[in-house]
């Protein structure tokens, strides 16, 4: 194969921008390499986002043939249909330009789910021990490798249909903190995930878990939140 036939879904404000590109095939080439080649060699007006190129920063996610993926860790040979591939902006988020989406709603919901550290100690207190063998710690550890890439958020049909829904990543972080012995805001977290956009809107279809590039399992984290909020409902009536 000499050339890859690449289609880029350009922003709605650029009806005349070039969409079809022929990109030289390499023996070893990621989707992000393909996008970068186009921007550097064919059309410098193409906008996209990346930083680390090694699956750490979570900034390079795009729709590749309709599937949300981290493009820096996706080999092009894995996604080619014949010699063609279509690359578009991440689903469920507003497009800024071309392949760059506005991640603000994603991070705003992260905060709305109380996905922030709630410490109770000061610098004068002794360091609280964390027991790695504790069951709750295991639950917390299961979700802490999240890189905020929003792939799960793009994969979730409930987010598409229900714009208030906090989404899998934010709820998984809430579950992580709920199980973290260093976090002191249990009731605030339960409250935050029980509102109109909370975990109870999830239909447990599991696209989040199926598509997370880090093999995390937001579906089970959300099931955990549903369990804990149900217990709290019987105990406290809310």
């Amino acid at each position: 194969m000499q050339n890859l036939r690449v289609t880029i879904e350009r922003g709605p404000d650029q009806p005349n921008a070039q969409r079809e590109f022929d990109v030289p095939a390499q023996a070893n080439q990621t989707v992000l390499d393909v996008v970068s080649w186009i921007q550097q060699n064919a059309d410098p007006t193409l906008s996209y986002r990346f930083a680390c190129r090694v699956g750490m920063c979570g900034s390079c996610a795009m729709m590749v043939n309709g599937v949300p993926r981290w493009t820096c860790r996706t080999h092009i040979s894995k996604v080619l249909e014949g010699d063609s591939v279509t690359i578009g902006p991440l689903r469920n988020l507003p497009v800024i330009k071309d392949l760059a989406v506005d991640m603000d709603p994603f991070f705003d919901k992260w905060v709305a789910a109380e996905g922030v550290h709630h410490g109770a100690l000061t610098r004068d207190d002794p360091i609280a021990p964390v027991d790695p063998a504790e069951a709750a710690r295991g639950q917390a550890d299961a979700g802490i490798e999240c890189i905020n890439c929003s792939v799960c958020y793009a994969a979730c049909d409930t987010v598409t249909g229900n714009p208030d829904y906090l989404g899998p990543a934010a709820l998984q972080r809430a579950w992580t903190l709920l199980n973290d012995s260093k976090d002191s805001a249990r009731n605030a977290i339960l409250e935050a995930v029980s509102g109109v956009g909370g975990c109870h809107n999830c239909h447990s279809i599991g696209s989040c878990t199926a598509y997370c590039p880090n093999d995390l399992d937001p579906l089970s984290a959300i099931a955990g939140l549903k369990r804990e909020t149900a217990k709290s409902f019987f105990k406290r009536g809310r």
Binding site: Y165, S194, G195, V196, H200, N201, T229, F233, R238
Partner: peptide
């Protein structure tokens, strides 16, 4: 759109 109360009512 579904809060905890509606969810519990529907599941119960």
């Amino acid at each position: 759109m579904l809060n905890l109360r509606l969810y519990m009512l529907q599941r119960l």
